[in-house]
Nucleic acid binder design. Structure first.
Lengths: 247, 247
DNA sequence: TCGAATTTGTGCGTATGTATG
DNA sequence: GCATACATACGCACAAATTCG
């Protein structure tokens, strides 16, 4: 039936099936804690041999997404899926506060560098101006959920990294500079395959897809504060935009 | 160097290399119209045989991303890229008006069907209520850019399909029902590999990624009008959210 | 407790795809 | 292009565990 599997594509059938089942779970088409169809039924659905289905299920079990019980069936263990709101007041660390355990980001590295053209454009600085670059990773339930790189005007926010690593929050760090409130000015979204570095940092499997946002945060007056590039594992994350029509 | 390629991962090395080169180009690490390193250099960088690199380059050439010149080298071809605004007033057919030639959508099919749960939820109807389903494709510069499925309350918008196919625009069709204005109420975004049907309809290559939006459009009073699922080719499209801070 | 049906687990032979030198 | 090694996918057969009447 649903044999939209690609042969000779460089992606093994078992991995395509694993991705499909994983995304079914993520999209709530499969009940969390529910029972999957039997291996024979799955093989028929995907138009493959039962061995191939078993390879896919084994991969997902090793990943901790499924559990198979001999003579019984295969069960969905949990649903590690997060919806990130992308609103005017978006702060990623806040956004997932009520959905997952961790709210803190972890500082991977920080450095001063001259602004590239896209960073300079986002921060309304001249290209080459010294900027502070923060590389961070945030986790939910122990799993990496975002890999983010942010830039700030170094002349103004030189010691940002200290404040961030102490609080794990950009919002809190900006408060030290007297910035009580800020807004998401623009967000651009695209998707691509993860690089090898991202596969390692976000604990993904080869061929995984990442959602990528390029965003500018600004003061209520429209003055740019932060330019950031954030990468999300596409199989675990949905981005959400809710508009308040009353505005 | 970068030989963190994964073996036995279900994704062939040549595809991992192709994805890596492809994302380098997307991230502007490789110059458009620039020359790639030679096959021997690439093989060394990824720690694989030259044959494997050649398989990756051939796949990217067939995809139209590279061009190899016998005795010379491999060159990056320019990629047409479209930015879709996702704002309060988002209408896809309007959005690309100033960027690309075509503004019209083409009706693929229309039918009446009972509302599935997610459609019913989006339109605030009871599941099973009769809804009108429109399947459309829009193109820019002769290339398919969106593949969209929309649902409307059949009791109210029964003859929607006629109006749409005449004008090629949802906005224009809704005017026939006295709806002068409407707003994007919510948008959810995720990304996944394209299905075989999508590969055919959007003229993609095997293993391509699609950006998927689930959206609700509503009247200024908040009454849902349209629930739609839209798929964009991720290598040709960036979604953009611009916030008017003054609001 | 039994037995039959169902479901997962395992072995083997073969063909094709992937990767190397 | 050729030869070699391993990964992937298939088909068939049968074993082992669970469920249920």
């Amino acid at each position: 039936m649903e044999q939209n599997l690609q042969r000779r594509s460089g992606v093994a059938l078992w991995r395509q099936i694993a991705d499909s089942i994983s995304s079914d779970i993520v999209r709530n088409i499969q009940d969390p804690n529910g029972k999957l169809p039997g291996e024979i039924a799955l093989a028929a659905r995907y138009g493959v041999n039962r061995h191939t289905v078993r390879t896919a299920l084994r991969a997902l079990s090793e990943q901790g997404l499924l559990e198979t019980r001999h003579g019984d069936g295969t069960y969905v263990l949990r649903k590690p899926h997060v919806v990130y709101p992308l609103g005017r007041r978006t702060r990623f660390s806040d956004g997932i506060g009520d959905q997952a355990g961790a709210k803190r980001g972890r500082l991977v590295s920080s450095m001063l560098e001259p602004a590239e053209t896209n960073v300079a454009l986002g921060l309304a600085l001249h290209p080459g101006t010294q900027v502070l670059r923060l590389d961070t990773i945030s986790e939910a339930d122990g799993y990496p959920m975002t890999r983010s790189t942010s830039w700030f005007d170094a002349g103004r926010f030189a010691t940002m990294a200290d404040f961030f690593s102490r609080t794990g929050s950009i919002t809190a760090a900006l408060k030290h500079y007297g910035i009580e409130d800020y807004f998401r000015k623009s967000t651009r979204i695209h998707a691509r395959h993860a690089t090898t570095a991202e596969i390692a940092e976000l604990k993904l499997s080869a061929g995984a897809i990442v959602l990528v946002t390029h965003a500018v945060n600004a003061t209520p007056e429209g003055e740019p504060l932060q330019y950031s590039i954030t990468r999300f594992p596409a199989d675990k994350v949905t981005l959400s935009i809710e508009t308040d029509i009353a505005q």
